Amino acid sequence: MTPEILSTYGLPPTQQGDAWRALFSSVFELEEPAQASQGFLAESRYWALDGFGIGEVSAPALRATRTKELVRRNSVDHWCLTLGQRETKILTPKDTLVVPAQTPFLVSLGVDIASERASDKRLHLYLPRDGFADMASQLDAARGIILDTGLGRLLGHFVRNLALSLPGLTPYDVPNLTAAVRTMIGACVVPSPDRLELAAAQIDEARLQKLTQIVRRNIESPALGAGMLCGALGVSRTRLYRLLQHEGGVERYIRKIRLEVSHARLSDVSNTSTIGEIAARLGFTDASQFSRTFRREFGASPSEIRLAAMDGGAAEPASQVILDRQPLNRLLAAL
């Protein structure tokens, strides 16, 4: 899938701010800081898909206003689900909301609204009313709501992985992708027992992807275990163990990731730590047991993997988890 790219890169600095404003003038009035006259490097990538669109925007600080006049002139009334890396301030005629970083929020382009934010890279999911007519009243009721809930944060994770996967998509993937987006929006923004049941497989896949990232980020932490993971995911121990039942349970799953990380570090010729030091940092205090467990997992000893790396022949471990590389393939497989 090839995006449409809008960019101010390559323009003279004094023209960049005006050019960026012109690109969006039919939908928003954009106001940049005073120093924008010195340059306003910004880029937008937009994918028009079947029944929805997704945009990825990287731009300096600005204020975007959807005025009453623009709403009258431009009849676009899509909902927009936004996920930013920085805090956002949303201003409506009745209220001002402060949205934390990495937290999704929903607005409607059919009403006047303004947003202020610092320099940021943001994702926008555009949901047309025709494509989401069956949940229109609930989405309207949810506009202006900060999705700072377990399901909301999971939806943010889903949107991030969706954006990462777009360059590798083909037109044949789009129908399933559209169904996946509709299902996740319904379950996470306007949840009901039926919608949650319909999205159960996708929600579990998204949780498993997020779980893997949490484990990898905390791989050297002595506190890494069921308690930490329950808190980070916002799930009960029962739900966590059910999520990992096909992986052999929590401890086995963590051990598997630790072994994969140890394999990667042993395969890295720039890593000068000893095998014992690598094992100890990853929680393997018994060197002999680490060596036996490593061989069972990869069919070679730690020292053999290190020697192969030095000889330029290190191979990818056959059992390596690849959740971080192909999130969409697994998501679609769960449909």
Rank of each mutant, 00 (worst) to 15 (best):
P3A: 07
P3W: 08
L6W: 11
Q16N: 06
Q16R: 12
R21H: 02
S26A: 11
E31A: 02
P33Q: 09
Q38M: 02
L41K: 09
A42L: 10
A48G: 06
G55I: 00
G55M: 05
S58V: 09
P60I: 07
A61K: 15
A64T: 02
S75K: 13
S75E: 11
W79P: 10
C80M: 13
L83A: 01
E87Q: 15
V99Q: 12
Q102P: 09
V107E: 14
V107D: 13
S108T: 15
S108Y: 14
L109C: 05
I113D: 05
I113P: 07
A114F: 12
S115R: 13
S119I: 08
D120H: 09
K121D: 09
R122V: 13
L123I: 15
L127W: 10
M135D: 01
A136I: 14
S137F: 05
Q138L: 07
D140L: 11
D140R: 11
G152H: 04
F158N: 03
L162D: 00
P167I: 09
Y172G: 07
Y172M: 14
A179Q: 14
M184C: 01
V189W: 04
R195T: 00
L198V: 13
L198P: 01
L198G: 02
A199W: 02
A199Y: 07
I203Q: 14
D204E: 14
E205A: 12
R207A: 06
R216Y: 12
M228E: 07
L233F: 10
R237G: 03
R239M: 08
E251N: 12
E251W: 02
E251G: 07
R255I: 03
I257K: 05
R258E: 06
E260D: 12
S262T: 05
H263C: 08
H263K: 02
R265W: 04
S267F: 09
V269H: 01
E277N: 01
R281V: 04
G283E: 08
F284L: 04
D286I: 04
F290I: 12
S291I: 00
E297L: 01
F298G: 07
S301G: 09
S303G: 06
E304R: 13
A309E: 06
M310C: 01
A318S: 11
I322N: 06
D324Q: 07
Q326N: 03
P327I: 01
N329I: 06
L335I: 13
